[in-house]
Design a protein around this nucleic acid. Structure first.
Lengths: 200, 200
DNA sequence: ACCGAAAAGTAGACACCGTCAACTTTGAGG
DNA sequence: CCTCAAAGTTGACGGTGTCTACTTTTCGGT
């Protein structure tokens, strides 16, 4: 059995690391800085994490967890189509409300997933939410198709949502004139065109 | 006038930096390592670049340049629709053939664009290619729309292509079973659904 | 209640990094 | 040929991740 205080310190490291990333960027995340924030020695983190990468992985794993929670807590829909739509909205909501977490999960060079099982597992959970939602419904069939494997349909929808949010958050939008209203307009239009592409 | 040898050294720094990134990842790009590769002192780069960020920006600027070149050199299409399609294919081609460059441009925490004018300018050029292509053609109108502003249509298409390639390159795909054939299938299906969403 | 081992935390050292300052070399224009 | 700015070098500083060795704390078995 583990000590309670110990566990909470490990927890504190993850939270402090997230704060540090928020203030100074991932690329400047420093173990020693994190330790300093908690008033412990620069070696204390090594009693809980084998390396800097493992702390980062723990932070990202936490992000996946929260992301999955947010997707799950979407408002109930009365039809599969409505539920899917709610899920899409929840996806964008999370990305817009937590741009840092979103970037950490999807737009950051991360340590290899296979070395960090918690991060990997939590990532799997998040993706499977979308896929299982699609497994139980029927999208518009493509020509010459018996059925459209949900695997590919999920990727299509996911790609669109991910690409949209990523571009919105990227420096790319700074290179063109882009207002608040443009963003809202684009979001609405994106969902409409998505409907055209998939609705049965 | 600048010395020829000097210019070629500056050039060599950018190339060596790219190699270094390829071998050790952006997050481990080291000025001193780059200098070592060229057999010069660890301070030599500072005669050509004010800081590490400026070398990175130069590398990324080069990526945007090559990206724009690749898009421009797409096969000629006989109709606007065909040309747009060729452009989409060229986009995916580039991302798949040069995953590192693509990640550097779109999926990497970069120094602020505004501090690096060359990077910014080259980025602008690449983005404008897609938009100007769409400006001269008519996509399927959305319900209750007089016309669909090309700005938003461009973002829709761009988001889909970007999201698709980004996911393909991300560790996310490692979390699910995914074969070579799945990737081809998904690509084809992605383009088909894109057609459903936009074709007039 | 104690004791001993395991765990948590500390301190110091090492090699690396980016960058500043001061130096030497080089090479092109008058 | 001389000059002087640019190119390149050397050395130092504070910061980093991580190794090793040390001390302190905690807790289960006797």
């Amino acid at each position: 059995m583990k000590h309670k205080k110990t566990e909470s310190l490990k927890e504190a490291f993850v939270e402090a690391a997230f704060d540090a990333i928020q203030e100074r960027g991932v690329e400047n995340l420093s173990l020693r800085d994190v330790a300093r924030r908690l008033g412990v020695s620069h070696q204390a983190p090594y009693k809980h994490f084998p390396s800097r990468d493992h702390i980062l992985a723990a932070v990202v794993a936490r992000c996946f967890e929260r992301f999955a929670e947010h997707l799950k807590s979407r408002p109930a829909g009365y039809t599969p189509e409505e539920d899917l739509s709610n899920m899409g909205v929840a996806y964008l909501e999370f990305a817009q409300s937590n741009p840092l977490m979103y970037r950490l999960m999807f737009n950051t060079p991360l340590p290899p997933m296979r070395d960090h099982s918690e991060m990997l597992a939590n990532g799997r959970v998040a993706f499977s939410l979308l896929k299982t939602r699609l497994d139980t419904m029927q999208l518009k069939k493509l020509p010459n198709d018996v059925a459209s494997p949900s695997k590919h349909d999920a990727l299509f929808i996911w790609a669109l949502l991910h690409g949209f949010t990523s571009l919105m958050q990227s420096d790319a939008m700074a290179t063109i004139e882009w207002s608040e209203d443009d963003e809202n307009q684009s979001t609405i239009r994106m969902f409409r065109r998505l409907s055209l592409a998939i609705e049965a």
